[in-house]
């Protein structure tokens, strides 16, 4: 880890208007949770449905996309990455430092609010809050790592990321059950299922498979992102 890169990335990512957008989304989740708690009669199942629909399948991919690509994409686009690359620092270390910032942001703005929303709505019943909090944490880490790699590998990272999150995980997944096996959302849900009380939520992927896939994807994408950064070319525009 390189503290200078961490500092610069955090300032670049959270210094502008992006932080307001992220904060607004997490506040929205909390406001919805408070309103539902005040005006509806909620069972743990209702809370689980809400958190699954709003947080795990919408907020987390979106946040992962924003922070994962935001940690490095703009620097590659405008060429300022050259000031980081023209240094005797291993490319893997650059990736790890940037990933740490993305993951921290995903936890602060998505996983923690998910846990809080769960706690507001369901208290401690059936471990719903904890289950979804941990599920969101796992999803946040994995999405960040995947989308960070995308931002290095392609100039169209945001579009590719949206296609994955919207088309694959939501659309294809709802028609083709097999596609759900290869879905970060389902892996995270499997972790949630293991923590919450029985019958609250169910995932299509077994916990063992989910954990293995999560570790493989996070490790693999992080390693490969370093490799891609090693061969990143900055084309001359003369």
């Amino acid at each position: 880890m390189n503290s200078t890169i961490i500092r610069m990335t955090a300032r670049a990512m959270l210094g502008g208007r992006r932080i307001y957008l992220l904060a607004a989304l997490s506040v929205l989740l909390l406001v919805l949770a408070v309103l539902l708690r005040l005006f509806a009669d909620l069972s743990p199942d209702d809370t689980a449905q809400f958190l699954h629909g709003v947080s795990l399948s919408t907020l987390l991919p979106l946040f992962g996309l924003i922070v994962g690509t935001g940690a490095i994409g703009p620097e590659i686009d405008d060429g300022s990455i050259v000031y980081i690359l023209a240094k005797p620092i291993s490319r893997a270390e650059i990736v790890r430092s940037k990933l740490l910032v993305a993951v921290t942001a995903a936890i602060a703005f998505a996983a923690a609010p998910t846990f809080l929303a769960g706690a507001i709505m369901a208290g401690t019943s059936a471990n719903v809050a904890l289950g979804f909090g941990v599920g969101a944490l796992v999803a946040g880490v994995t999405y960040s790592a995947l989308f960070l790699l995308l931002a290095i590998a392609t100039r169209h990272a945001v579009i590719v990321g949206l296609v994955y999150a919207l088309a694959w995980e939501s659309l294809v997944g709802s028609f083709v059950p097999g596609a759900r096996t290869l879905s970060i959302q389902q892996w995270a849900l499997s972790v949630t299922e293991a923590i919450t009380g029985p019958g609250v939520i169910s995932s299509d992927v077994s916990l063992g498979a989910a954990l293995v896939l999560l570790v493989l994807v996070v490790g693999g994408t992080t390693w490969y992102a370093g490799e891609r950064l090693r061969v990143l070319t900055l084309a001359g525009d003369d």
């Binding site: 060429g79 300022s80 023209a86 240094k87 005797p88 620092i89 900055l234 001359g236 003369d238």
Partner: peptide, 16 residues
């Protein structure tokens, strides 16, 4: 990347 101990680079692009 070790060569950057020896090389200093002033790119043309203005983005910093």
């Amino acid at each position: 990347p070790e060569v950057y101990r020896t090389i200093g680079l002033v790119p043309e692009r203005e983005a910093t």
